[in-house]
Design a binder for these strands. Structure first.
Ligand code: FES
Ligand code: FES
Lengths: 131, 131
DNA sequence: GACAAATGATACTAATATAGTATCATTTAT
DNA sequence: ATAAATGATACTATATTAGTATCATTTGTC
């Protein structure tokens, strides 16, 4: 039961590195600095690129560059990319077993926990991780 | 990212059924009532038995019986059986990458979410699920 | 005692999700 | 021209979760 997966984890480390350094950073450099497998990192950064969080530059001297301001990038934004819609439960309505969904105390509780988690993940920005 | 797994889910349904009905209930009966695969249910109930939540009775007319009072059984107790220690993050201290664990805002935040989740899971009892 | 109905124990398989690799195409600075 | 970078995408590996199968043991009933 992990709140954030490795994709998200690696993304954050790369983003932190890029935010601190500024400008264009190649995957090769990130691999050296962060000790993250290059091919995997590439896939991850390409995803961030598609989502508009990074911009890319091909060719020698190329790489990726942070497009958004660190204070505007939320942990939830990153997690959502790799972990789809971040849900902690889908409960049992597909499979009934619960007399009345609206009154179900289990669902209510799990929903509550989920929304708390989402609120917190949505509140922490990349800027906050930079110290 | 699921807060509770199927093991836990099925356990709860079985426990609710047993609490409502009282007395000894066979897996066969539970299978019919809850539409959960029998072999799987058996494995689950045997685990609950080992943990002292249920008692078992062999032979014809046998089955399982709830040993603990519904108000004393927490959702967290059940989840813990199948999901090991319920942790939402182990963060990155194994893999460093973080300058100072004690000050890390990411770890602090994830820990916070986790402890909230555990507190809530620990607060809801089987009795509360019975309506 | 024979038998059938139940659980105990445990090994095995299947499905899914996560993690990671490999390859070829395209762009671009020199 | 070449090499260094990303783009796209298919593939493999590992771990976790879900579920099945089988044989042994206990026990109520006739
Ligand atoms: S158990 Fe999920 S809606 Fe009730
Ligand atoms: S990132 Fe986990 S301790 Fe800092």
């Amino acid at each position: 039961m992990k709140l954030i997966t490795r994709n998200t984890d690696y993304s954050l480390r790369a983003l932190i590195y890029m935010a601190k350094k500024g400008g264009i950073v190649s995957v090769r450099e990130l691999e050296r600095a962060l000790k993250i497998p290059r091919a995997f990192l590439r896939k991850i950064l390409q995803a961030l690129n598609k989502k508009g969080i990074l911009a890319s530059q091909k060719g020698p001297g190329g790489g990726f560059r942070l497009l958004v301001a660190p204070k505007d990038l939320r942990l939830l934004d990153v997690a959502s990319i790799f972990q789809g819609r971040v849900r902690l439960n889908e409960c049992l309505f597909k499979r009934k077993a619960c007399p009345d969904i609206r009154k179900c105390p289990l669902k209510r509780e799990l929903d509550n926990i989920e929304s708390y988690a989402l609120r917190r993940l949505g509140a922490i920005s990349l800027a906050a991780l930079l110290k």
